[in-house]
Design a protein around this nucleic acid. Structure first.
Lengths: 220, 220
DNA sequence: ACTCATTCTTGAACACGTTCAAAAAATTTC
DNA sequence: GAAATTTTTTGAACGTGTTCAAGAATGAGT
């Protein structure tokens, strides 16, 4: 088994993530990581082709943790608003230790070329995992959501989650209180807004929105 | 008159923007700008404290142009959907020459510390100018929009515009066709969606959305 | 045990954005 | 106009992410 190799890789990743948390992204230089881990700079690059890939490591880890705690928080919660709250709040929870570093993360993640870009090909797995959380949030709430919406809803909610994450990055209130408030306010509103889809006049607009989303998504 | 000094400043800015357009952001190094402009690197830094500030220069210029062409495109258009389309399409028009460079721009702009961050203090003037465009788009369309929405609508539309810009950055279809399609589809939908505010059951949800926006915006 | 190939590790080197002490040029003061 | 002051300009230097040729360690086959 490639024990030694994997060990070095983990060591570098662990040291890097620890330093990200403790002193931030920019101050965590590749040289500092290497020194702290007791390896050469080039060796760190043997395992991670760029500093961005270390961010990807963080991204995956945070995502995994989110899946666990979200599943836990969803237990016993039935209504869509509550389930949405659970998923969003736990999402913010797992990101919390990295808040000061959030803006650098977003700046890294937002470039199409980045392995961490949430829309990109390189993070398909992570995105799927995240989408799955929202799918389970939607599927667990029995009647509230109109049939035709069920299919696209998880993806739309995930997109909204990206928006919340962006808001969170800019949120300088202590403990990111404002983000919490946004979640608490927006989740019931989304649920109520969706229930409006039953009103005839509104239903048509919903249809068109979904049509547009599908249309734009499939390029053509 | 500080002719000489201003001349150097303009020269550096012009060369930089030209290179941004022609070879992209990353390949346009400060050394290359200086060389092309016939000044020293340090001299470029005398006028622009960072490469980001050169991006800010671009941002302001694009914004100014948007104000001009949008005002032109709004002439004679009455309905909200049409006016929204006009503003959004012209917005994409003025950004077009910089599309390949868009992702770098966004990555720069998104960090809270950046002078170009659209939400930040350093770009208040530019944001106000952009907001004014949306304000005039809303105010020019007579009856369609409910009173209570008028006040906040420009800001919300501006926010949506930021979303469109983000979409545009990722849009790799030729000529950013998909973004055009998104605008054409979304503008009428927004207008129709807003007209739903008259329906009693819907109106309540709209009120709550506005309440949430205001609540979250004012921190507290 | 001895080759040979593969995997892992090293540290010097590169180009980049940025800084800064010092020089040059322009301007103001007398 | 000379001296003093301010504005502008220079280029070497720093620390950064990243690359790469070269060497060391490991493992496979005989």
């Amino acid at each position: 088994m490639a024990a030694k190799s994997e060990q070095t890789r983990q060591l570098v990743a662990d040291v890097a993530l620890k330093m990200f948390r403790e002193i931030g992204f920019e101050k965590t230089t590749m040289r500092a990581i290497a020194q702290e881990a007791g390896v050469s700079v080039g060796n760190a690059y043997y395992y991670f082709a760029s500093k961005d890939e270390l961010v990807q490591e963080l991204y995956i880890q945070v995502q995994d943790e989110h899946a666990v705690v979200a599943a836990q928080a969803l237990e016993g919660v039935q209504d869509l608003a509550g389930r949405l709250k659970a998923v969003l709040h736990t999402g913010v929870d797992v990101m919390a230790p990295y808040h000061q570093f959030g803006s650098d993360f977003i700046a890294t993640a937002i470039r199409p070329s980045s392995p961490v870009n949430p829309f990109g090909a390189a993070s398909t797995a992570a995105r799927e995992a995240s989408l799955a959380i929202f799918r389970s949030a939607v599927e667990g709430s029995p009647p509230a959501v109109a049939k035709k919406l069920r299919g696209d809803l998880p993806e739309l909610l995930w997109l909204a989650y990206m928006g919340v994450a962006l808001f969170w990055v800019y949120d300088q209130s202590e403990g990111q209180r404002r983000t919490r408030k946004l979640i608490d306010g927006a989740a019931p509103l989304v649920a109520r807004g969706l229930s409006l889809a039953k009103i005839p006049g509104v239903s048509k607009v919903f249809d068109d929105v979904l049509g547009l989303v599908r249309n734009v998504k499939e390029d053509s």
